[in-house]
Write a protein that binds this DNA or RNA. Sequence first.
RNA 1: GCCGAGGUGGCGGAAUGGCAGACGCGUCGGUCUCAAAAACCGAUGAGGGCAACCUCGUGCGGGUUCGACUCCCGCUCUCGGCACCA
Length: 820
Amino acid sequence: METKPRRSSYVPQEIESKWQKAWEERGVMKASDMSPKPKYYDLVMYPYPSGDLTVGHARNYVMGDVLARMKRMQGFEVLHPFGWDAFGLPAENAAMKRGGIHPQTWTLENIAKGRRELKMMGILYDWDREVISCMPDYYRWTEWLFLLFYERGLAYRAMAPVNWCPVDKTVLANEQVINGRCWRHPDVEVEKRDLEQWFLKITDYAERLLDDLQLLEEWPHKVRVMQTNWIGRSEGAEVDFPVVGMEGESIRIFTTRPDTLFGATFMVLAPEHALVEKVTTEPNRSRVREYVATARKASDIDRLSTEREKTGVATGGFAINPVNGEKVQIWVADYVLVTYGTGAIMAVPAHDERDFEFARKYNLPIREVIAPPGGGGDDLSEAYVGPGEMVNSEQFDGLDSKTGFDRIVTWLEQKGTGKRTVKYRLRDWLISRQRYWGCPIPIVYCEVDGIVPVPVEQLPVLLPDEYKPLADNPDFWRTTCPKCGREARRETDTMDTFVDSSWYFLRYASPHDINEAFDPELANRWMAVDQYTGGVEHAILHLLYSRFFTKVLFDAGMLDVSEPFVRLFNQGMVKRFGQVMSKSAGNGVSPDELVAKQGADAGRIYEMFIGPPEEDVEWSDAGLNGVVRFLQRVWRLVLEPESIMVSGGSASAVDPTLLHRKVAQTIKKVTDDYDGLRFNTAVAYLMELANTMQDYLQGGGARDAGWDAAVRVLVKLLNPIGPHISEEMWERLGEGGPERGLLADATWPEFDAAAATEPQVTLVIQVAGKVRDRVTVSAGLSEEQALASALASDRVRAALNGAKPSKVIYVPNKLINLVP
RNA sequence: GCCGAGGUGGCGGAAUGGCAGACGCGUCGGUCUCAAAAACCGAUGAGGGCAACCUCGUGCGGGUUCGACUCCCGCUCUCGGCACCA
């Protein structure tokens, strides 16, 4: 067979910048607020401008870009904006490292760099809508939103034991403490301090944040589960245990197992509980005080470890179990948390593992009140925490524990010593940060008027130009009280950057609005976000906060939607040499490198093809070369088909109707896969189409109208993912032009179901329960006709080998029966 | 410990209950070349057969079904999250 090696004349470097310029000049990705077309809001999580953008990070943005381009071609008015989460610690650290440089300078430099790198990857945004959270025209409205929360009673200041990172010298939110360590410094244990801090009252929204998770059907299951657990709803009862010898004083406990109340043999208070001092009797006082002091000092990492043996001390005080009048000891132990429930528990060692361990250690009584189904209840080697039949519970004996739960609660409610309650694990969101580089909290402290919000007309409270701690800068904090005009002091803490990012997706709707945070009409035009793409590391923090903000703004009548993100997707990370790709790790591939060597299109397609989008993937240069080969073959198929025909190897001709069917099927598969973010299989189908087209040519297929149609479909389907090469080929085919192009003309190939497949059924022919053969026949035939035609074939006769089929099963074919 | 996701060739990975391994990488063979690289053509789950073909094969053990990677039950391993939340 004759072969003529021929190199394709596809040279990405010669065409990519040309098209990037053309798109920008034509403004093809500018979203119109007035367009009559249906809207599509395609959002990627705005990044922190660390200056570390590699092709690994770009994978996320390519996904968003593929979707934006396809949706645009499909006739949607697409909002595909970008911005920067620009406040935050790394800027301050870098500023310190580089001696005297201002965090803003460093941040804006990185932003400029990042913008350029995104553009060279061919990723298109409506840059007119760019938001930068550290600029006054943005953070002014973050301040404004804080005041809105304050007005609505959702921002408050409180003294609280807080998580303090000794390295960053700032307070952290609960969500930013991981295993008792700082989220930024996995080696650094978080300390506990008591400080006056600002909180946002997210707990008011716990129930709705939980309930509405059910509406988010297009979120990853995993994220919904994580948020559910984080919010942590528990149904139970609060019960009052009167303190012995103290008239009118009682300890309120929370339990999820009121059915075990008769098994409560002692009580435990958290060390920080308000009644500890009161219930402690004299001989125990010094020991209790010592224990409490030690517990308060201990870091969470010590205190929360489950491996650690439980410790505690008896107070000497007693309380009365309200269900049976029994006197029970009151203990103090740090396994009870002051921040959950009421900070006090009834201990039921027979049916709670923690209480059991504690009772064993300190020889406290254990009484079984729930008998496991099937007996075996005498085993006291461990707590039985499951359901069962109530015993030792007086009038409730014999009830199953679930019924007992309800009966006991009702009884307590009638007696007035308890009530049904729901508790959440979620805590209020601590937003104060003792840092310079953040959004100022617009509050003034006046000796006369107390906490005074800065009047809206006086916003923004600007960060001073000089980079030093705000508390050390009297020019900043020295002010006058907006109410009485006396000397007053500004709040010198700034806000958690997660406040900035909790509403940026709304700002994109009207980014230049100087009168309000966002124009409700425009926000409602674009919201909710149809597709939100970003890392799973934000499964709780950012996504929970953004949902909270959206609900508050919904309640304030500023938004019509109460959930911000319809469909969420968490992409995997790109690794290289086994590590996440990054410049600092030294294993990064920069967009510059990639574009110079293989071109942006090959890089984009490779990143989509490399593996399932939600999985972490390993970058390999060999794999990238495979995509380069694919693009060169496409180029030759489209523009230089003669070179393919003469180099042919495949002898078998491809039937033209098979080519047409393949084309139709590919339209269906690729469209669905882009839509469903299954980019890896979308690329595979494009490759299959190219393979089929090549076989067709090499089998002597004519370059007729059908061929031309196939070529055009291939180019169009390729466009979202490999836009530069597609636009160039389109122009060279005579379809595009200086003012036109695939994206500008915006047409997407239509799926022709009739062309994609012919109605078929598969006959499964069996002899004695064993499959002998399968035959695909036209669906129009009756069973007899189908069988007769199947039996006429040599292959089936050979398979049967004289035997008679004992069974024939008709299987309707899939709509898409891909041609081999 | 609890919750969740997942175990498919040498590798990344495809498969609405209907011919497992698409697509790509790698490897092997070939064409071209003085040669090599690149490019192109072909082969490539394992075992057997000159061959057409045959047998086995999706972590392990059962089950449902004419038919199971796919559904059900039990186990096991890996990864991710949470972790004294009463």
